[in-house]
Nucleic acid binder design. Structure first.
Ligand SMILES: [Mn+2]
Ligand SMILES: [Mn+2]
Ligand SMILES: [Zn+2]
Ligand SMILES: [Zn+2]
Lengths: 147, 147
DNA sequence: CTCCGTATTGAAATCCATTTTCAATTATAC
DNA sequence: GTATAATTGAAAATGGATTTCAATACGGAG
């Protein structure tokens, strides 16, 4: 039952004084099994496959619990809902946005690890995630000659 | 009346085919005069001092217009509302934000140049700027988190 | 294993940011 | 001025997140 959770999750949660209930286990497994960031609604949908009575409220509460324990990251999303991912995977929210046509492209993340560690050393913060946007003009909009 | 707007805002908006109405001017000036990012509600509150009949809906619509024209940035915020700032104040912003107490610290920018050039080569975009936020827990808030 | 105290749960109500709708208003071209 | 289409604000609708509270289930004590 608990063996397919990531290393130490169960112990961490118990040691923090929380009970490992069935609803929580359902949410935990969904997060544990996903390599990509999920919306709360999607977590709910998937976790219901394991525990159909699961309420959306419990999903919120469990995600909050995991967030406080540092086991997941919450990515600040655009309007319409935050995203959650396992903290041991790298959280990504990187967009390249055209200022003219507003088209957005996802870009890979490189070279932020160093900056993160440097910042942690200098400030004492425990960095949990990041958000990066690049702005510019897409190829199509570069051809237009407007100001 | 229009002279205290940032360089070119009025022309840009007119050239894009939008009318420069009194409600819009009220919102524009509020954004123009603020050096810090504002919530929509705060923009509404301030703009009402100039144009009391102003509706919240128009604030949303005008901010969206400014966003599409690239005159303001929208900061993907935590739960509770997005923030808007003049784009020309922070061609790139760098903030480290505590998720618990919401304290924000400015951080230096290092190592994004390479990523920018790489992205330009791969996508054909002309990158003009960026916005980077790191999220985590400040030293003070880390202490109250274990038990 | 059973009993019990308490943490946890889910439905419903509530809150709050954002969007949609639509009739009335207003900016701008002519 | 007049015409015309963009713009406006009130109100309703939407949708994510939080609060409330009685019912439930976990996990330690016996
Ligand atoms: Mn990244
Ligand atoms: Mn920078
Ligand atoms: Zn474009
Ligand atoms: Zn803090």
């Amino acid at each position: 039952m608990l063996e397919d959770l990531p290393e130490g999750w169960a112990q961490l949660i118990r040691r923090a004084g929380y009970r490992l209930t069935r609803p929580r286990q359902a949410v935990l497994r969904v997060l544990a099994e996903s390599e990509v960031a999920l919306t709360v609604a999607e977590v709910h949908r998937r976790a219901r496959a394991r525990y159909p009575r699961l309420g959306l409220v419990t999903v919120y509460r469990t995600l909050d619990l995991l967030l406080n324990l540092g086991l997941v990251h919450r990515l600040p999303g655009e309007v319409g809902g935050q995203l959650y991912v396992r903290a041991d995977l790298h959280p990504h929210g990187h967009l390249l946005i055209c200022r003219s046509c507003h088209r957005a492209v996802e870009i890979p993340c490189t070279g932020l690890e160093e900056m993160t560690h440097e910042v942690e050393r200098q400030t004492g913060f425990a960095v949990q995630g990041h958000w990066l946007e690049l702005f510019g003009l897409c190829p199509a909009c570069q051809e237009g000659t407007d100001g």
